[in-house]
Structure formats: C-alpha cells, structure tokens
Computed example of a mutant assay.
Amino acid sequence: MKINHLTSAEENLMKLFWKLEKFYLKDIMEQHPDPKPHQNTVSTYLKILVEKGYLATEKEGRIFRYSVIVPAEEYKKFLLRELSHQFFDDSGKEILDFLVKENLISQKDLQSYFDLKIEMKPVKIKEPKLEYAEEILNPKKTKKEKVKNKEKKKKKKDQNRI
C-alpha cells in the first residue's frame, strides 16, 4: 500500500480517526475539540482522506460509516523514513546524534534502552581442533604396518591354540 503525505489539517483529523478507528460524521463532530470545524469542512476532509487511501467507507442507509485503513504506526514509519531520507542521508546514526544534540533524547535514555535490548546468552565454545597434536599423540599407521600387526596377532592366536 502506498502512503501519501498529509497536510497538517489532515494529520490532526487522522489523529482523532486513529483513536476512533470506526466512526460516523456525527462521532467526529462530537469528539472534535473546540473550536469545532464546520460539518461541511469535515465532510470535505473525509472525502480527501478516502481518496488518499487513509479511510474506507461503508454505506449504511443514507449515511457513511468510515474506518481507518492506514494504521498510525504505518504513517509514523512513513514519516520517519521520509525525514531520514530527506535530511539525514538515510542514516540512523545521524538521527540519533541530532536527537541527543537537541536534548530530545538523553544518553541515559539511550543507555537504558540498549540495556533492555541486550540479552546475555551463553555462547557455546567450540573445542579447538588440534590436528598436529592429534597426529603426534595418535599417529596414523600405514597399510604396511596394519598388515604386519594383523599378521603378528594371527601368529599369537595360532601359538596360543597349540
């Protein structure tokens, strides 16, 4: 789903719509803080937001029931990506530097955030493979030596039988 930019007036109405999720025009007029906009103004914005794909309509008799299509979290992600792309060269580090520099987030907040995210897990340590030591401690026998050993064992068995 493609998300489009909203004007500040559209954003303000969407904040109310995100709280309501499903609503009628009368619900908006009741919930909107003072000074309340004119009903025709709200109707116009509803029509625009439906066209932009933020709201869906369902006709119930002579009135429409509206429901939110684009969740608030999706719009936040869209805005943050746009901001990152336009002003911070798609760098999260630059955003964090800016937030700390402007005292919008403290280093203590960051530290506590990362302390919560870091989870200590025991690491399985692989035993080192000591090839040379293995060769010295358990030298491989050549085929000739193996055949000789078999012959010796056979002779011992034969001698024990006698």
Rank of each mutant, 00 (worst) to 15 (best):
F64Y: 15
V70M: 04
L46F: 07
I63H: 10
F88L: 06
A72C: 03
F88I: 02
I48Q: 10
Y75E: 02
V70D: 06
Y54C: 10
G92Y: 09
N103R: 11
K59I: 08
G53H: 11
K93W: 03
L79V: 12
E73D: 08
E82V: 10
Q86R: 14
F98L: 04
V68G: 03
L83K: 07
L49V: 01
F64E: 11
K47A: 09
T57K: 13
F78E: 10
E60V: 11
L80P: 00
S84W: 03
L55M: 09
H85I: 05
E94A: 14
T57C: 08
R62H: 07
R81K: 15
F98Q: 11
L79W: 02
L55A: 12
F78K: 06
Y75G: 01
V68P: 00
E94M: 12
N103V: 05
N103I: 04
E74I: 00
K77A: 13
L104T: 01
K76I: 14
E73H: 05
A56Y: 09
K93I: 03
E58L: 10
L55Y: 12
L55I: 10
S67A: 06
D89G: 01
S84Y: 04
S67D: 03
Y54L: 09
V100Q: 05
S91R: 06
I63D: 11
K52N: 09
K52S: 12
